[in-house]
Nucleic acid binder design. Structure first.
Lengths: 213, 213
DNA sequence: TAGATTGTTAATCGATTAACAATC
DNA sequence: TAGATTGTTAATCGATTAACAATC
């Protein structure tokens, strides 16, 4: 099940649809949803909803709409969220620890949330060997072995900016294929590794622009 | 100094340029930078760099380039980062506390980083009255008065999803003009208030798509 | 059947890139 | 002056929206 290169803009909307469908799946009154309704709930135009979905197949019935649970399952499958994905967080400072707790809670609460943080890494000997919400903190030196051993394919970088690139390099060397970077620096990864940036200060600086009235 | 409606895509690149210029400003060897060089460092094409800047004025010299410090100052001014912006964080859980520490450190370390977290709000009576890195934690009930009193114009929502919309409503009522939402829900704000979403699980779900090889 | 809604094609809109005259 | 690089216009590219035939 491999599709041609589908635009990033399309992919970014899929989790939005999935969230709406996840909520609706609990409501026994709504078995079906139209692109119109799904669009309103996700904040996307109805035509765009249909076009986005059409990249991956024909999921709806003309004159009827989309079956909520069916479409939800399809989207989960498309996003690779139908089986567990193991995640490492590098950097067990307050930010790293906060994400660990946050993601762990999400995973524990919702059996269909298959993103599971299984390891933290840190340099601080005082932290190594401890646990955060049951997630072990390993030494950063063990990163490569542990990542391989635990079959971790995704990682979150929550280290200081200076260490971000080195961390990324080591993760990539260990076989990580997707990285979410919280450090406020541009980092480079080779072809085939996907990088997303979640840069808090960048977001705040953008927001500042709109403050002038 | 008000410009016509400038695209969000343009605004999002300005902090990228600013970051490059901030770094370069410390280097006494580089007084000047070309759109070419600035583009490479920011990960943007040279033509786009020039076009982005041209929306706000003529900052360069033909045949020469842009003066680093001058352009940095202009960008700061454009982004409203030339004077202090006071920020509130609502929700002093581990995520809220982590951001507070993070932003506070940034502000303390760098005198040109004018984004200052001055208040936390929480419902938990055990937290109210305490401090995190010197930032006071107030009761969520005091939100409106405190926000007005402290002249807070920007806020970060780090509360559970269920409370996100109510929190946003209260912030808006108190005069907040820009909100960064970390809760994994769509929230609505009136015209004139700017909303950005930093949804961790959404980012991770997007990344999951790219895991298939 | 009549009404509704899909999947898809064509039209529109907006953003990026290329090109180049102006000029430092 | 010759070389370099800007600001800006025109060309290209991509993404969203509108429209509609197909069909449930």
């Amino acid at each position: 099940m491999r599709w041609k290169k589908i635009s990033d803009a399309v992919i970014r909307r899929l989790p939005l649809y999935l969230r709406v469908l996840d909520e609706l799946a609990n409501d026994p009154n709504t078995q079906l949803i139209s692109s119109q309704d799904l669009g309103v709930r996700a904040g996307v135009g109805p035509a765009l909803v249909r076009k986005d979905l059409a990249w991956f197949g024909e999921f709806g019935k003309q004159g009827v709409g989309y079956e909520v649970k069916f479409l939800r399952d399809e989207l989960r499958r498309i996003l690779n969220l139908d089986s567990e994905i193991k995640i490492a967080i590098v950097g067990a400072g307050s930010l790293g620890a906060a994400f660990a707790r946050y993601a762990h809670k999400r995973y524990a609460d919702d059996s269909s949330f298959n993103l599971n943080v299984v390891a933290l890494f840190d340099n601080d000997p005082g932290k190594v060997g401890t646990e955060i919400d049951g997630i072990p903190v390993y030494s950063a030196n063990e990163m490569q072995e542990r990542v391989r051993e635990l079959q971790i394919h995704m990682a979150i970088i929550a280290v200081p900016s200076e260490q971000a690139q080195t961390t990324a390099d080591r993760l990539v060397a260990a076989g990580v294929k997707a990285i979410l970077n919280f450090a406020p620096v541009k980092i480079n990864v080779p072809e085939g590794v996907h990088l997303a940036s979640a840069d808090l200060s960048l977001e705040l600086q953008c927001l500042a622009y709109y403050l002038r009235d």
